[in-house]
């Protein structure tokens, strides 16, 4: 991976275009519905959260895109991590993410989720959210405007419609050992139940 965020983001966006054409009609329909109905768990971890209320209310009215805020992770499709994460917060963020049903996506809001932003030398915030959770879409800036967040949603919609196997939740499942290792380095082992241990077999 090259230095910097922009080339990385570019590479993510390029990939989508190529995959889209290989889907069946039903898959495309499903993807369309998923893309046009996004239930958001807006986790106000840091100051970026201040930009979310305007996004959701009359001024910017993101409900036009089918984006609705929900209260519980069980119902959410998208987790917005809005700003810097202290380990204490991250613990809850991870737990919330793990309780979401697949498919699920993460939007990292603000520079802090990318490289720590203005907290780059803080002893008590994580620098790179992607080490712990698979971020699907970054919205950079400090802070990013609601327009930027909407842009992020639109981009995410495209990504969802592409239905990539590179989607964050699939990565989290397949590369769990990596994420878990990073998490354990931060929290130790006793805190969080292991993700795969939460579920006893599929299908009732």
């Amino acid at each position: 991976m090259d230095e910097g965020f922009i080339p990385y983001q570019q590479s993510l966006e390029d990939e989508e275009q190529s995959i889209k054409s290989t889907q069946s009609v039903i898959e495309q329909a499903i993807a369309w519905f998923r893309a046009h109905s996004m239930f958001v768990l807006a986790y106000g971890t840091g100051c970026g959260a201040i930009e979310m209320p305007p996004t959701f209310t009359s001024r910017y009215d993101i409900e036009r895109l089918g984006v609705v805020g929900v209260a519980t992770p069980r119902q959410a499709d998208i987790l917005i991590v809005s700003g810097y994460c202290s380990p204490k917060t991250l613990k809850r963020v991870i737990r919330s993410y793990e309780q979401m049903s697949e498919p699920k996506y993460i939007i990292g809001l603000g520079s802090c989720t990318i490289n720590g932003g203005m907290y780059w030398d803080s002893y008590n915030t994580i620098k790179k959210l992607d080490d712990f959770l698979p971020v699907d879409m970054y919205v950079n800036g400090c802070m990013p405007r609601p327009e930027a967040l909407i842009e992020g949603f639109v981009k995410l919609q495209e990504k969802i419609r592409a239905n990539s196997s590179e989607a964050g939740y699939i990565q989290y499942r397949t590369r769990y050992a990596h994420y878990r290792a990073n998490q354990e380095r931060l929290f130790g082992t006793q805190v969080q139940p292991r993700y795969e241990e939460n579920f006893a077999g599929m299908n009732l």
Partner: peptide, 20 residues
């Protein structure tokens, strides 16, 4: 339905404000 039901292993795995 397309969606598959997964049963939680630990009854304490509930949505509890991100807490365990």
């Amino acid at each position: 339905a397309h969606s598959k039901a997964k049963k939680v292993k630990d009854p304490l795995d509930i949505s509890y404000c991100g807490e365990v």
